[in-house]
Design a protein around this nucleic acid. Structure first.
Lengths: 123, 123
DNA sequence: CCGAATCCATAGGGATACTG
DNA sequence: CAGTATCCCTATGGATTCGG
């Protein structure tokens, strides 16, 4: 079998770590975190508000992962009062575009997605 | 903090199972499977060729997951010769669009992604 | 305020071998 | 051909507690 266009370098290749795959943006919360940073830099405690369901440890994990991936930057301010600021990098910001497209797709088909799931639970 | 547009119904809500999130398309191999079905229905053994790294058990798992999600259909033909065919549902097909957009994004920024990762390993 | 350290539970993926 | 059946094992997420 052949695919029209090759995937990134080669998604079928072992070398492609699945964590870099465009549709597996990091961990469980990564996408949500990204969206919370959409409007500008945020401090840790600010992120904890909308992400109340995420424990600090897990949130840190997620942020570290995004940092490693070059999608988020972490800056410790000299003034301790300023805290630590997380922000999207240009790369991270560029990722919002396809991500939001995916979001909109999901929003449009939300009921179909839920239907399909319910139906299979019933069966 | 507020987001301009609400996410799907409400991504921050507990009710939103993360498996339905647009950027976490099912399991590790789901996206690859979808792309393999892009050009038309395929049988199990046909899928195993490009997905040679995936064991049959895991491939089955992935297909079942996609089926539950309403993205892929599974049809057992009366004639045993025809085998079992997997195909994208209209819903599944509609998902290829945002997914491919994400793919293209990844392809464009592939080196940046790798760079960021390497840099952090070095450190 | 921003995490780190520890411990735990589970699920997901994988290897291997076997069946209708 | 199209899966099952086991068994294992690590990674991830989560609760809780502690530190700079």
């Amino acid at each position: 079998m052949t695919l029209h266009r090759p995937l990134p370098p080669d998604m079928f290749d072992e070398l492609c770590p699945s964590s870099l795959l465009p549709f597996r943006f990091g961990d469980k919360w990564a996408a949500l975190v990204m969206r919370c940073l959409e409007d500008g830099p945020r401090r840790f405690s600010e992120l904890r508000v909308p992400l109340a369901r995420v424990t600090p440890k897990v949130l840190t994990q997620s942020l570290r992962g995004l940092e490693r991936g070059g999608l988020v930057s972490r800056t410790v301010h000299a003034d301790p009062k300023a805290g630590v600021e997380y922000a999207l990098t240009p790369l991270g910001r560029s990722m919002l575009e396809p991500m939001n497209a995916a979001c909109e797709w999901a929003a449009e088909h939300w009921d179909e997605l839920l239907d399909a799931r319910e139906r299979h639970i019933a069966t």
